[in-house]
Nucleic acid binder design. Structure first.
Lengths: 339, 339
DNA sequence: CGGTCCACCGGTGGACGT
DNA sequence: ACGTCCACCGGTGGACCG
């Protein structure tokens, strides 16, 4: 499965494995979709043997926006090849798939970073290909992490150990008496401290070679292994991925960060909740200003150590930059965990 | 200008007044748009002599979703008439225009409600056509209101009197020292107490007959008259309009309501900030749950009188329902203003 | 008049439940 | 198989600025 479109590779695909599915004779009720962008097949096609940042220097250092755009590009090439002038997909289809791909590929990059990091933490040394500078934090198996790409409809509270969930539940019970609530949703990705019971599992130290369907399932299902096993202070990082920004599309992360900070810092005594937003097209500077907003919870309490709700709006230039930055983050943040 | 498409009316339009503008020979840079939905012309065409809720019984009681959909429907009819098979607009064009139309038409309905309300408040009695039940609050010129459809890029803080803006500025200055901020944006619409200097102006008591271009300008520019003249406690209602909902598109109002509550209630001593969301297609019940969220500011302070950030998610069945509900709101809320 | 910015939302691929 | 739900974002018309 090639990163660069290959007519030979495409020809060898079973129709169910193709990036474009012709559904003109099996339409979805109430939709006019003629061709589907089979997003999981697209990932397997373009990234089946490639994880950016852990591939060739050419890909690791390639403009990340172009890397992320490649699956749709390849799919359109395939669709045009098979269906010529009949082929058409709505811009909203590309938008949806491009967004999911940015999230899934970035999660995979961070998954491999975590694998490499964990391998160092258990005393296996620092892998050298491709080369990243070795973190300086003193290794400890207790400082391993898990990268969790969280699914649609998720509630990040379900990651927490039962005792912590109960604290939140009691708090909510009080609110419910007044017809109020404080629903939680989710960031796209969470980095958590690897619970003790998994610290000898090799799977958390294995870099994946590509986003084959089995590896997609491994990464997208990883969260299930950790539900109910994370301490409030062990949610080390939350990330929202937005391929491009619009001024009205900035607020789900901003709001969720505020809620996480109220519950984790305010009710559960956790240290600062690190929540960041990644994008490839910020479209102006307004978003950077919006994300300077102070965390409302800290403000209202009149605390001295008020901080931003969103720690940073990050625009990864290349996959290698994303990886380097994540290693640096781990090197700093994991010092909080007793080695 | 007919609510129902009329080939005769269309024929009499100058090309600059048409709902569809052919820009194939004058394309916008970096866009592939062939035909523009001229939204202001569309409003003038379909609502030039009609304000729903203040029109015929047929329109006032018509499904509001259909009312709001009419301008795009008429425009597509026009485009098909003039350009046959060449005519095409992207779904995102319809989406943008439909959203703005929902906002502008709903603002016009509420503008006329305010006019009728104000006329009662200055002692002119209760207009009877079309019939709405007479509010019971005792009339006072000081209880007049202004309905402000706020523009893109607006900052609601600019409505406040200078002294209040200064309080907020000082608060922000303190935050800036730590590299923090608390930027404000805006609801789509604000209902404010009419400042004393305007309480004899007739314009605030005049119902408009339709959304002709001059009337569009009157309504969209009204906010300029009140900037710097509103007391913190006089922002009576904030509204966000969202024609349809998606789970990720709920949060700008939710966040902005929280910020307004922190600043107006917390820093400026205003009573409860009423912020609501209107939609025509909630798509499930999830949004109702999301909007049960307690206001974070009140929560953190541990106050007794905690309330929701968003008071209600409202789905107007008809324009008459929207009008009735707004009259009822004014009847209740304006009691806070000394008569 | 051209370029930039703003905030609009509907069409989507996949997960899940019946 | 089918229906419902979820959260993805890019193409827009107009305001504003130089």
């Amino acid at each position: 499965m090639p990163f660069t479109y290959s007519i030979e590779a495409t020809r060898n695909l079973a129709t169910t494995e193709r990036c474009i599915q012709d559904i003109r004779n099996a339409p979805v009720r109430n939709r006019s979709t003629q061709f589907q962008l089979a997003q999981q097949n697209m990932l397997a096609y373009t990234f089946g043997e490639v994880i950016p940042g852990f591939a060739s220097a050419g890909i690791n250092g390639m403009n990340y926006r172009d890397v992320i755009g490649r699956p749709v590009e390849n799919a359109v090439t395939e669709g045009t090849h098979f269906f010529r002038d009949d082929f058409r997909v709505d811009s909203n289809a590309k938008a949806k798939v491009a967004g999911d791909i940015f999230e899934i590929v970035s999660s995979a990059v961070m998954w491999n970073c975590a694998a490499r990091w964990n391998s160092l933490m258990v005393g296996e040394g620092w892998r050298s290909q491709p080369r990243y500078s070795r973190p300086t934090l003193s290794p400890s198996p207790r400082r391993q992490v898990a990268v969790l790409n969280l699914p649609r409809s998720f509630d990040w509270v379900s990651l927490l150990v039962p005792e912590s969930q109960e604290v939140i539940e009691e708090f909510r019970a009080g609110l419910r008496k007044d017809g109020l609530g404080l629903p939680t949703s989710t960031p796209d990705l969470a980095v958590v401290v690897l619970p003790e019971e998994f610290q000898n599992d090799e799977m958390w130290r294995e870099e994946i070679a590509g986003l084959t369907r089995p590896n997609q399932i491994l990464l997208s299902g990883a969260y299930q292994r950790l539900q109910g096993r994370v301490q409030p202070g062990e949610i080390s990082l939350a990330v929202a991925f937005k391929r491009s920004l619009r001024s009205d599309r900035l607020y789900q992360p901003l709001y969720e960060a505020n809620v996480m900070q109220l519950l984790l810092e305010g009710k559960l005594g956790a240290p600062k909740v690190e929540f960041e937003v990644h994008t490839l097209a910020p479209e102006g500077t307004n978003a950077f200003v919006t994300y300077e907003a102070a965390s409302l919870y800290g403000l209202a309490e009149g605390r001295s150590a008020v901080h931003r709700a969103i720690r940073e709006l990050y625009v990864p230039p290349t996959a290698a930059d994303l990886a380097r930055r994540f290693f640096a983050f781990l090197n700093e943040r994991m010092e909080l965990v007793n080695g």
